[in-house]
Amino acid sequence: MKKTIQRGLFTGALVLLTAMTSKPAHAAVNYQALVDADVKKFQGYFLKEFPGVKLEDFGDGVYALDEDSRKQWKEMEEFPPYELDVEAGKALFNKPFANGKSLGSCFSNGGAVRGMYPYFDEKRKEVITLEMAINECRVANGEKPYAPKKGDIARVSAYIASISRGQKIDVKVKSKAAYDAYMKGKEMFYAKRGQLNMSCSGCHMEYSGRHLRAEIISPALGHTTHFPVFRSKWGEIGTLHRRYAGCNENIGAKPFPAQSKEYRDLEFFQTVMSNGLKFNGPASRK
């Protein structure tokens, strides 16, 4: 009898001890802390690589690295080639739909919402980008969506970016689903692909600041701050996902469609990496 009581007490103590020391199955993981550690490493890489460049200047892309290029760019920005697109974007933003509403009815703050995108929608379990939100607003109001790479989508996005200049990037990763999307974007950024077996990071981290023929390769830090851009090569304004597709083609990989999950996750990751910088789009680039 005594032995039975002793055994019972021992087992009870063991169960209690296990319960006290082990983590509960639902223990909350601090995903934001994991991501913040990544941001610190990522930004630290560039600050070490380019010791003369301040963190906030990485939003200027390659023009933060090379003084001559910066002077030329500054001159170009005096009469920016995207100015007419911004004006057109403003008109499109305020133009009434057939139902009498407009894009303006979908966005708060008079449309100065660049700083709210991209974000992870916890209900839909996916990343929502600004261009996606613009097109979803149109569809919800019975209009056709814009083509996703250039033209009106880029013009409206440019207008929204222009009235949002100076908004701080502060993308949050709060849940496992958001972290999964972030990790998918991270994988997309670091994994090598295509016939040339190259990755985003290969060019825009390891080779950033070096020459590719006559051009200097831009740093990945700050990549998402200034889109949409008017590229001299395009001769027009285009979206970030258009640029992603161009990069993928350049390395011999089949590009994903603009606003695909792959590119939205990549944009999510890249924007998180620029947390602390300011949105400064639209911009002109070579």
């Binding site: 295509g194 016939q195 993928n248 083609e249 011999g252 990989a253 089949k254 590009p255 994903f256």
Partner: peptide, 11 residues
């Protein structure tokens, strides 16, 4: 393609 790694010119 299913892996997301199809090359540009294969198709």
């Amino acid at each position: 393609d299913a892996l997301g790694y199809e090359w540009r010119d294969t198709g």
